[in-house]
Amino acid sequence: MKLLKKSIITGTGIPVRGNDIDTDRIIPARFMKVVTFDGLGAYAFYDARFDEKGNPTDHPFNNPVYKNAEILIVNKNFGCGSSREHAPQSLARWGIKGIIGESFAEIFAGNCTAMGIPAVTTDEKSTAELMDLVTNNPDLALTINIEIPEIRIGDKTFPCTIPPSKQAALLNGTWDSTEILLKNKEQILKTAARLPYMGGFSS
């Protein structure tokens, strides 16, 4: 089994400000007419990036200074709404390798972990400061240390949190649940046998 351990993510940052940015906003449904996630990076924040006439807006994802950014910084309840994994997939394929935010919607955070992307939370004040630091110094590298966990930018550090299960999955390289759960066959069969209405179970 291939294990890809993730303990440190480093890259320049990109702030996308606003609470409750939903997954329809991250990738509109009309771009979900796909049978693989390939190429979705082009549609990240599409309707926020282009106006009705198709002209680019001043959205950070259009700003050339953030072209190579790898760490997204957001505010509260990021990724709410639709469960579409297309949303974090489009961000990842645009180039995002880690996300820092005040809070995340549950399914979105789960999808990030399943993809091996750390989504760490910081308080409101730290988030605002991180956003300002990145806005003023777009070339400054950020580091998310998943093990401690903390965020480092220049000579500053900020504490952050990540649920222990998600932290362990990233550090141990066991975030790829499709691979991992194949190990648990025996216990799955035992539970299935215990449930009276689970006839016809096969693996």
Binding site: R84, E85, I107, G110, N111, M115, T178, L181
Partner: peptide, 10 residues
Amino acid sequence: AGVGTTDLEV
């Protein structure tokens, strides 16, 4: 509960 594609796959 709703889940993403990877969890659905599992």
